[in-house]
Design a binder for these strands. Structure first.
Length: 706
DNA sequence: GTTAGGG
DNA sequence: CCCTAAC
């Protein structure tokens, strides 16, 4: 344990500072509501830490006296010694989840021996950073420059980190474990424009059992965020309510309101700097609806392919001062598309703040201590809560299960705001983002042992929640309400697309696009007739629609929908994206379905007959039964065909369209353009004529009436 | 609901 | 493909 006894020797005078912070916090608590969240966040964390450390040092100073000598803090890998022991960090740090901390540790510190390097590699430099922060913050808390101070310290902290990272660009999360000692979590990051460093970071630094998996686990690598995160904690958990053992030091528990667990500072990268451009609701809306929503679908794919995919993911956090780079965004977006991270709510206004989160796999949530301390459960949706169960040792049928939800973590937020934006505007932006998430489209999921309990009709007793052991692993998650629109189940595999004209005209089973998936969209499954109390069997079930398409374990009775190999984009997820408009926008982009040559042929043929400008007729004529092709689609396709026909063949992409067809396209387009022009002129003339006549008549009548 | 056009 | 304006 890294107790005061062990820390203080390394940092003379630190104890005083800790005491100061701790006391200050106490005095401040009454007025904390008035304090800025951002300030409070950091400060409370530090205050909590200080208090805890002090407390710990007082209670265990004697016992740890010798330990401190044995475990040099800096450079010695003292933490590692501890963690390599009998306690898997996984379990110990569970409750940090509420603080957004555990994910990393859990992700990287499995009992696997080869992962201990993490802990080894990063000795307690972090404790220094975080402790130093506490003093600095305490000194500046009354001023308005807390942010700046924090920033400074963060940078400092970062520099410390870099000492240990070497060429690896990244940062480490400082965190205090349940035991009260500071863990060094490694946080994979990416610097600069951050595309390429992929290989060199976390995965390499610490060989994981499955590099691929790890890559997928850390979507944030795409984001150029070299930052140090500050867990945000408002209130330490009262120790009285928690059995005081090694898990009693709980940081990162706060009120019941939302908490943004991480404060991150993003390194500024002039290279990628993009001055604030046109902004406005429209752009925001566009981003929301057209781009970022794409993030969501990936979740399913992830779950589909790898249930444990999210383990070790990151929590929601704030990235301070993130400059807004379109390129980054694109990368991010792309990354999400490819790596399938999780759903996200993206709020953009213009500029520089952002946060993101990665959900964690239920697997990682499983571990929990048995001491009744807060247990962090990570929902598959990236929303999680920490729960403290207070339950009587014996549960009778009449006994009540008492639990308090310490916090909910919002699914995720991505916020961009100009550097020049005011703090007030930032607050409003964040508030909007949060409100958007909370406003609607959020449901609550219940997890037990990290698995969702979907049967709402079960009693707590039946699900096993009444037992203390299980209660400790109880968790709640916020998740988008599976209102509608289950992911369209389809494939982009050309082989499954209509290949000839005859097939075009039939919405055969090969194109189960939109109609197929929309069943079973109800959030709550029908009451199960099976009332067995074996929660284990039920845990594999899913409560949320978003989880419907998952791994094999879900192929039970609920698997009403056969899930073919799914295109990533087909798994569009619905997000509660309601910005200014209160109503949530459940936007789902259709799957991209490139036109086949045969389709093009049909289209050309139809246009040749009816001409352009009569897309409905075209649709009815040649694509009547191709439900996935709207006349707008046909019109758009024609547009692109014309464009394609005009450009050089080398510039064309996608499935090559026979030149013959393109020639016909040009010919038809030219013909109908003229024809349409004539028609238009004729119509215009006719309309004008009629109008004039009418006007004249009215004029006459008017004159008469006058 | 359609059509046209920008994104 | 999406979104909107204009029919």
């Amino acid at each position: 344990m890294v107790s005061m006894a062990s820390i203080c020797p390394q940092f003379p005078g630190l104890r005083d500072q800790l005491e100061y912070v701790s006391n200050f916090k106490r005095g401040l608590s009454l007025n904390k509501k008035k304090v800025e969240d951002s300030q409070l966040c950091a400060f409370d964390l530090l205050a909590s830490l200080a208090g805890k450390l002090l407390q710990e040092s007082e209670s265990s100073a004697s016992s740890n006296a010798s330990e401190a000598n044995d475990q040099p803090i800096i450079g010695g890998g003292g933490v590692k010694c501890e963690q390599a022991e009998d306690r898997p960090l996984k379990a110990e740090c569970l409750d940090h989840g509420s603080c957004g901390e555990s994910a990393f540790v859990t992700g990287f510190t499995s009992p696997n021996s080869d992962q201990k390097c993490l802990l080894n590699a990063f000795p307690h430099a972090e404790s220094y950073s975080i402790l130093e922060r506490s003093s600095m913050i305490s000194n500046s808390i009354s001023s308005e420059k807390v942010g700046a101070d924090l920033k400074t310290v963060i940078c400092k902290s970062k520099s410390v980190c870099e000492k240990f990272t070497g060429k690896v660009e990244g940062s480490f999360d400082s965190r205090v474990s349940c035991d009260g000692y500071v863990d060094n979590g490694f946080r994979r990051q990416q610097g600069g424009d951050g595309l390429d460093t992929g290989g060199l970071t976390a995965e390499n630094a610490c060989s994981l059992k499955d590099p691929m998996e790890m890559r997928m686990k850390f979507p944030a690598l795409i984001k150029p965020d070299n930052d140090v995160e500050l867990p945000s904690c408002r209130e330490p958990v009262p120790n009285a309510s928690i059995p005081r053992r090694r898990n009693d030091t709980k940081l990162g528990v706060r009120d019941d309101d939302l908490n943004f667990s991480r404060c991150k500072k993003l390194l500024t990268k002039p290279k990628a700097f993009r001055p604030p451009q046109r902004i406005g609701d429209r752009r925001i809306r566009k981003l929301l609806t057209s781009k970022y929503w794409k993030v969501a679908p990936k979740l399913k794919e992830c779950e589909l392919s790898k249930p444990a995919f999210f383990e070790g993911g990151m929590k929601p956090h704030y990235r301070k001062r993130k400059l807004c780079y379109s390129r980054e965004r694109y990368q991010h977006d792309t990354f999400y598309k490819r790596k399938c991270t999780d759903r996200s709510v993206v709020m953009t206004s213009d500029g520089g703040f952002s946060s993101e989160s990665v959900c964690n796999s239920p697997d990682m949530s499983l571990a929990g201590d048995k001491n009744g301390t807060a247990v962090m459960l990570h929902g598959a949706n990236g929303v999680s809560s920490s729960v403290i169960g207070h339950q009587s040792p014996f549960h009778s049928k009449d006994s009540h299960v008492k639990l308090s939800i310490k916090s909910f973590r919002i699914p995720e937020l991505f916020i961009e705001i100009p550097e020049t934006a005011t703090v007030g505007s930032l607050k409003r932006t964040v508030l909007e983002a949060v409100s958007a998430v909370l406003g609607s489209g959020l449901g609550v999921g219940v997890l037990l042992h990290g698995m969702k309990v979907r049967d709402d009709n079960r009693t707590l007793l039946q699900t096993g929640m009444a037992s203390k052991e299980n209660l400790d692993t109880l968790g709640f998650s916020l998740e988008p309400i599976p209102v509608q629109a289950p992911p369209p189940l389809c494939t982009e595999d050309p082989a499954l697309l209509p290949c000839d004209t005859s097939q075009l005209i039939s919405s055969s089973p090969t194109t189960p696009i939109i109609d197929s998936g929309i069943s079973d969209a109800l959030p709550d499954p029908p009451p199960s007739t099976n009332l067995d109390t074996n929660t284990e069997s039920n845990h594999e079930s899913v409560s949320s629609h978003s989880d419907m398409v998952t791994d094999d374990t879900l192929s039970d009775s609920r698997a009403l929908v056969a899930v073919p190999p799914i295109d990533v984009e087909a798994l569009a997820m619905v997000l509660p994206l309601n910005l200014k408009s209160k109503r949530s926008e459940l936007v789902q982009r259709r799957t991209r379905r490139p036109f086949s040559v045969s389709e093009v042929e049909a289209l050309v043929h139809a246009v040749e007959e009816v001409g352009t400008g009569r897309w409905r007729d075209v649709k009815l004529r040649s694509f009547e039964d191709a439900d996935h092709r709207t006349y707008v689609d046909l019109k758009d396709k024609w547009k692109t065909l014309v464009h394609t026909a005009r450009i050089a063949p080398q510039q064309r992409r996608g499935e090559p369209v026979p030149q013959e067809l393109l020639d016909r396209v040009l010919a038809a387009h030219a013909y109908w353009s003229q024809h349409q022009a004539k028609q238009h002129n004729k119509n215009q003339a006719a309309i004008l004529k009629i109008t004039v006549a009418h006007a004249v008549r009215n004029g006459v009548e008017d004159n008469h009436s006058i």
